[in-house]
Computed example of a mutant assay.
Amino acid sequence: MTRAERGGRERAQANLPALAVALLLVTASVGLAVGLAGGAFAGAAGQPTDGRVAASAADRLVAADGPLSVRANVLSAAAVANASRGLVDRLVPGDAAVRVALDGEPVAARGDPTGGATMRRLVLVASAERHEVVPSFAGRQAVTLPRRTANATVTVDTRAGTDLATVRANDRVVLHDPDGLDGAYDVELSRYDTVTLSFDATADLSPGSVTVAYRAETTTKGVLEVTVDA
């Protein structure tokens, strides 16, 4: 064995203890981290807190299919006004004191929480009012509806000799009968667009030939609060 080979072997052997110590430290650190993480997870999973229950209930309320929801993060004003204790019982089974409030005003409650935890969610509260419009058809055979109009009822009653065959929502055909539309028809519209209904008829339409009924939605901002005190 040459001197160079002996030197390389001696250096390798000298480095073995340092490598072993390094591996031991890494193994210990990983084990400690896993142990701490596992302990924290076990504590979180094994001991439900008021805050976690309140957060879960708040998330359920603002979900798209929530008991008060029109869609995600949008609550129905009518559903909020008609809420009762049954809402709380479904959200948080058991006997913990629970209060649901909107902008500080109680919506539903079970008991009287004096402590516990409160979770808040920013929401919109939607109200819908029914409107009816009779297009005058002065200058064009169309009518524009407010934004967020999700559906409408179109009633057709044309005068003799005039057939209304097609109704379009923007560029989409929503009603069509080559023999002429007659009666009331429900039409699905895009909630996110400003929709113009246009009417294709064999002659100029007169006022009263078409009536459009729709529900217009207005929204206000609010803060939903869920308090749980077990």
Rank of each mutant, 00 (worst) to 15 (best):
M1E: 15
T2I: 07
R3Y: 07
A4I: 12
E5N: 15
R6V: 13
A12F: 01
A12C: 06
Q13Y: 05
L16A: 07
A20P: 05
V21W: 03
A22Q: 04
L23G: 07
L24R: 04
S29H: 09
G31C: 04
A37S: 09
A42K: 10
A44M: 09
G51F: 06
S56N: 14
V62C: 07
S69E: 08
R71T: 12
A72L: 12
L75V: 06
V80D: 02
A81V: 00
N82Y: 00
S84Y: 00
R85P: 00
R85I: 00
G86T: 00
G86A: 01
A96Q: 06
A101K: 02
A101G: 04
G104I: 02
P106N: 02
P106G: 03
A109M: 02
G111L: 05
G111S: 08
P113I: 07
T114Q: 09
G116D: 05
G116I: 01
A117W: 04
L122D: 12
L122S: 15
L122A: 15
L124S: 13
V125H: 04
V133A: 15
V134N: 14
F137G: 10
F137L: 06
G139A: 09
G139I: 04
R140L: 12
Q141Y: 05
A142P: 06
T144M: 13
R148W: 05
A150L: 11
A150K: 14
V154N: 11
T158F: 01
T158K: 01
T162V: 14
D163Q: 14
D163R: 10
L164D: 03
T166D: 14
T166P: 11
V167M: 10
A169K: 14
L175I: 02
P178L: 12
D182P: 11
V187D: 10
S190Q: 13
T194P: 12
D204M: 04
L205A: 10
T211I: 12
Y214P: 08
A216I: 07
E217M: 14
T219R: 09
K221D: 12
V223C: 09
L224A: 08
T227S: 09
D229T: 05
A230F: 07
